[in-house]
Amino acid sequence: MIAGISIYEILTVTSILFFIGVYGFITRTNLISILMSVELILNASIINFVVINKYLYPDVFQGVFFSIFIIAVAAAETALAVAIIINLYRQISSVEVKDTEIMKY
């Protein structure tokens, strides 16, 4: 509970955060930026978990635990994604999405 701030305001902030992530995901042309956008989406949902847990069910901790779980998974996923990007960079000397079309074939 944060005094003076209602759940609506926080949810508004996370929604904005989420859609910034989605927008970035769709419009960025750089793989690193896309990865960062995905992180934004994930963070928005983590905040939602925590906030809903805190405001609506203060006597349980599942939301908090779940957010820690997501952070761990996100870290692993980011590491994997960065590894792929680095390998790709070694092959084509670029991290631009349009250059990765070669992977279609």
Binding site: V22, I26, I34, E101
Partner: peptide, 12 residues
């Protein structure tokens, strides 16, 4: 197009 961002946009 084969670009996943386009598909993601269509999905969204």
């Amino acid at each position: 197009s084969g670009k996943f961002q386009d598909y993601a946009f269509a999905f969204l």
